[in-house]
Design a protein around this nucleic acid. Structure first.
Lengths: 126, 126
DNA sequence: TAACTGTCCTATTACAACTAGGACAGTTAA
DNA sequence: TTAACTGTCCTAGTTGTAATAGGACAGTTA
């Protein structure tokens, strides 16, 4: 499914959250699609099942997935709530990044061109 | 100078690094300007001097400041090296953010308009 | 020389991530 | 009904690292 960097300073469960979130945002994982069972994914990634469960719980808290005890975890077909707050967070991050890009010599048109690229490049992969 | 969130999950020394980096990028701290002495800033922020020293060491490693033992730490008038690598990192972050903004319903023109705002807003403050 | 400055060191505390190993309940299909 | 899945929850323990505490040493400056 994906790989982890066990030596990273970023917690493993958080890496799992980010990876799955990315797969959902880029529609690699479709709405109502079933996620791997916690024990399966844990074995696959070579980590403890509790770590996956923690990641799933967090994804559920954020609204990206929903859980059916005894059945499995599934991609939430509805986009997470608290949209406005999240968009405000993203704007803050964007501001920080744009300012640093300017500092390193990129121009407004370079940045906008890069954004066009991202969007034209479609929603999947790198 | 600034404030910290001691309850944050982000390490204090890293918060210090980010804040000072931001002040340098936004030219609140000018080239060759002297930073507060480690003991002074530590007392000011109510934390241990070693924590500030760690932050300063990291800022020096990244090329934002330079150190003159016995004299003080100063803003590096030259922009940090390894620019290209840093710009690549920033582009990756930007891609992640733009994709998530699209996911939450922002349009290309909204994003570009927001970038214009950031740039027109000048380099200082929020 | 005294009072700054940065740098470095060891020991210790505190906290959070993660692991280990299990128990329990809902679901599903043989 | 039963076996084999599934998610969920729990306690205990390890580990890594941030941060503190308390210093020592050397360069700089008035």
């Amino acid at each position: 499914m994906f790989e982890l960097d066990v030596k990273s300073r970023q917690p493993i469960y958080e890496q799992v959250v980010d990876k799955i979130k990315e797969l959902i945002i880029n529609e690699v994982l479709k709405p109502d699609e079933k996620l791997p069972a916690v024990r399966i994914l844990a074995a696959d990634l070579g980590i403890n099942p509790n770590t996956i469960q923690k990641a799933y719980r967090e994804l559920e808290r954020m609204g990206y997935i929903y859980s059916l005890p005894g059945k499995g975890n599934y991609v939430n077909p509805q986009k997470p709530g608290a949209k406005d707050e999240r968009i405000d967070e993203l704007k803050l991050e964007l501001k920080r990044i744009v300012r640093e890009m300017l500092y390193f010599g990129m121009r407004e048109e370079d940045i906008k061109a890069f954004i066009s690229e991202i969007i034209k490049g479609g929603k999947s992969g790198d």
